[in-house]
Design a protein around this nucleic acid. Structure first.
Length: 782
DNA sequence: CATAACCGGGG
DNA sequence: GTGTACGGTTATG
């Protein structure tokens, strides 16, 4: 059984070192392997295949349609094999060589059956097919990269520098090229007439270095389309393919590409080499991490600590002009770009590399595909094909959107000594624990591989922890565990995608969330039973306040005690502890860590056009509040009012940042119809030129007009400003985020504008915030 | 003022 | 051959 599950996960053919595969509908395949750091190219043949629910469209073939026999695999035009499974599934495996003979026969029969001309197999839901490379890999059980580590790959990065973003308006004047075998060079075309030679030199260099992988940031969105268009216009052939396969660059429409302004987004493919766009990797990373302010190369490199200390910063529009005056600077800039791409690749492509060792797909597709349809489903299809079992073809009704995770708010106010506990990998754990898989998955492949993935991931996680940080072996295990995490986390979402997934089962998906809500409620009840103060619970985690004399040991013991009451396979984990928490609304709260750091979560605390003085007050106030220091909150508020009223607050403190999106011309066109404060501010400050995308700071002057803050280093510049606006609108706007911490009367007093005590007011020092208190709790450990 | 459509990146 | 999302703009009624 384990052997079978491992084959489901990793394929079965042992062929080592595959670094690229090309296959065509004609049944030819080419495999490139890296063996002892040499590239070996092997030609192969396969029978193109497709799954069908019926043979009805092939009746016209007569004797050319034959059942498959082991003795004569190439007899007849089209062969079929009847698969095990339900009668409404894809129960015939059809194959033919060449594959387009099969397509033609099906289209001809279907046209006759339906009484209209059918030109695309995709339009027929009686058939299920995959691309030629996938067909080849699923049939052979081969996968990429057996026995290779990430550093064994020969990876090359190239980056174009151009005079414009559009290849119809600009040209290439420089290319930076590097690889992980020591190359780092610059190709240049100072004059327009040098560009054809630059392009052919680039091709020669790539062919000569012969990399397995070509990488860049926005490779498919910029560099490839740009160089393709320039080569076309200049009549320069683009020979980038590897020896052994077809020489042409292949182009296909990216399904994500929307028909915006009529143009479809395209992707490219080069036989023998894998094209990796680090922008895809960054997007996938940030999809879950949600921590990157921008997905641009420089910003991401800085975020990951990859940027050189002497990083050359150049606005895109100035690159060519800089090149004319200071070419060395642009050379350094371009080389730093490709260095950063390499760094990003090493940081982010470990998981796709490991996934390519499991899924029957090209590495470049694994790296850009979604995990559910792009990886999980091919694994399932390969398993069914291997077993000779029919794929399900159920017309599933799309049910009303089902209830998701539970969100429960128990208390608002201030809590001290807070513990967060959460269930590890909630949905996959529930699937495994209660064996909730798609009913149509008769072989139990999804639950089988989920089971194995969860166990294997723990092993790889442990191995990564004990390995030397940064070592080859640590990287290997980390890539594996990250790859497995991606697959594990996509299992639930896959089941719940009725119109997309072959093995979808919405009832099963609903059952998982129902169990999730039930489990969370169970954890909540258990905590309540122990007497701790519940604050909020969301899907898989709970915040509670515990007795203030507890140490971390007691907290952990509490979570462990609750955990033992849960079903086997469901792990409740102690996620962390906090000095204090301000619970504002569901999913909106502030936490104070034990090292004094403030963490804010939720839309209420994420300010948009952050105004520095108010932003700082809110931080100070939250700090004070979380320490229970109401006097401190009030004092900071009064000090802020005084500072604003003094009229001497630096403009930099009052200004909000806004981005200019319209050019001066664009604004001139709409100004009469709809004046906008931002541009009025610019014009009022005497500026007539700016560029779209520029960020400026604006403030409101004493006459209620908006002004832009002169750019420059004078952070202490002052001018008359609209005191009332900054107090009543801005400061009070920020202050309302604290109102749930107090009784209404007390809150009104704390944010009162003047310092006078009202008739019924009590001294601030006597005001208590709205405490969320934990009563006496019996220690969970002796 | 509300809602819909669009964008995210690259020189 | 391929299927994201989500928060922030900008266009449109």
């Amino acid at each position: 059984m384990d052997v079978q599950v491992d084959q489901w996960l990793f394929g079965w053919d042992p062929l080592p070192g595959i670094v690229s595969v090309w296959a065509g509908r004609d049944g030819r395949a080419v495999v490139w392997q890296r063996v002892q750091d040499q590239v070996v190219c092997t030609r192969d043949r396969f029978r193109p295949w497709i799954m069908a629910t019926t043979l009805a469209d092939l009746g016209h073939l007569g004797a050319d349609l034959v059942p498959v026999t082991a003795a004569s695999p190439d007899v007849g035009l089209v062969q079929y094999r009847e698969l095990d499974g339900p009668t409404d599934g894809y129960r015939y495996l059809l194959s033919a060589r060449p594959g387009y003979a099969l397509d033609r026969a099906i289209l001809q029969g279907a046209s006759r059956r339906l009484g209209r001309v059918v030109t695309r197999l995709r339009a027929l839901d009686d058939y299920y097919g995959v691309g030629p490379v996938e067909q080849y890999l699923m049939q052979t059980g081969r996968v990429y990269f057996r026995g290779l580590e990430y550093d064994d790959l020969h990876r090359l990065q190239f980056d174009l520098e151009t005079t414009a973003l559009d290849p119809r308006e600009g040209r290439i004047f420089m290319v930076a090229v590097r690889d992980n075998r020591g190359l780092a060079t610059i190709l240049e075309a100072p004059e327009p007439e040098d560009e054809p030679r630059l392009i052919s030199d680039l091709c020669s260099l790539i062919r000569e270095r012969d990399p397995d992988v070509i990488e860049n940031h926005n490779l498919h969105g910029f560099d490839l389309p740009f160089v393709v268009e320039r080569a076309r216009r200049l009549w320069v052939p683009l020979y980038l393919a590897r020896v052994g396969g077809p020489p042409e660059l292949e182009q296909y429409a990216d399904s994500r590409g929307k028909a915006a302004n009529g143009e479809r987004r395209m992707r490219w493919s080069i036989p023998g080499r894998e094209l990796i766009d680090t922008l895809d990797a960054v997007r996938r990373y940030d999809f879950s991490a949600r921590e990157l302010p921008s997905h641009g190369l420089k910003a991401v490199a800085r975020h990951f600590g990859l940027a050189a200390t002497d990083r050359v910063e150049l606005p895109g529009a100035q690159i060519y002009a800089t090149y004319r005056s200071d070419p060395a600077r642009v050379r350094q800039y371009a080389l730093q770009d490709v260095e950063e791409v390499d760094g990003l690749s090493r940081r982010l492509l470990g998981a796709p590399f490991a996934l390519a060792g499991m899924a029957p797909r090209r590495y470049e597709r694994v790296a850009s595909a979604g995990p559910a349809m792009g990886i999980l489903e091919p694994l399932l299809v390969r398993a069914y094909l291997r077993a000779g079992a029919a794929l399900p073809c159920e017309k599933q009704p799309v049910l009303a959107p089902h209830a998701g995770g539970a969100t429960l708010l128990f208390a608002t106010g201030i809590a001290q000594q807070v513990v967060k506990a959460d269930v590890a990998s909630l949905y996959p754990s529930l699937m495994r624990c209660y064996q909730i898989g798609p009913v149509c998955d008769r072989l139990g492949v999804l639950l089988g591989i989920l089971d194995r993935l969860i166990d294997l991931r723990l092993l790889h996680k442990a191995a990564a922890r004990t390995a030397v940080p940064g070592s080859l072996i640590a990287g290997h295990h980390d890539g594996m565990q990250a790859a497995m995490k991606i697959l594990i986390n996509s299992a639930y979402g896959y089941m719940g995608a009725p119109h997309l997934a072959l093995f979808a089962d919405q009832h099963a998906a609903d059952e998982v969330t129902r169990r999730g809500r039930e489990l969370l409620q169970g954890v909540v009840n258990a905590l309540r039973g122990r007497g701790v103060a519940l604050i909020e619970a969301d899907t898989d985690g709970v915040y509670v306040a515990v007795p203030e004399h507890w140490a971390e040991r007691e907290e952990r013991a509490l979570v462990a005690a609750i955990a033992t009451e849960l079903p086997a396979g469901i792990q409740l984990e102690y996620e962390g502890r906090y000095q204090a928490m301000f619970s504002h609304e569901v999913k909106n709260y502030a936490l104070l860590t034990y090292d004094g750091k403030l963490i804010t979560r939720g839309v209420a605390f994420r300010s948009r056009g952050a105004v520095p003085f108010a932003e700082r007050w809110l931080q100070t106030a939250l700090h004070a509040l979380l320490h229970g220091d109401v006097v401190g909150v009030r004092a900071a508020f009064l000090a802020t009012i005084a500072a604003v009223r003094s009229g001497t607050m630096p403009l930099a403190e009052l200004a909000e940042q806004v981005a200019l999106t319209k050019t001066p011309e664009a604004y001139a066109a709409t100004r009469a119809r709809r004046p906008e404060p931002v541009y009025e501010a610019l014009l009022a400050a005497g500026r007539t030129t700016w560029r779209a995308g520029e960020r400026i700071r604006i403030y409101r002057d004493a006459d209620h007009r908006w002004f832009s803050l002169p750019t420059g280093d004078d952070a202490s510049a002052t001018a008359a400003y609209d005191t009332d606006h900054y107090l009543q609108n801005v400061l009070m706007g920020y202050a309302t985020r604290l109102r749930k911490a107090f009784a209404p009367d007390d809150f009104a007093q704390i944010v009162q504008m003047d310092g006078q005590l009202g008739l019924f007011d009590r001294p601030i020092a006597q005001i208590e915030p709205h405490w969320i208190r934990c009563g006496n709790v019996e220690l969970p450990i002796p």
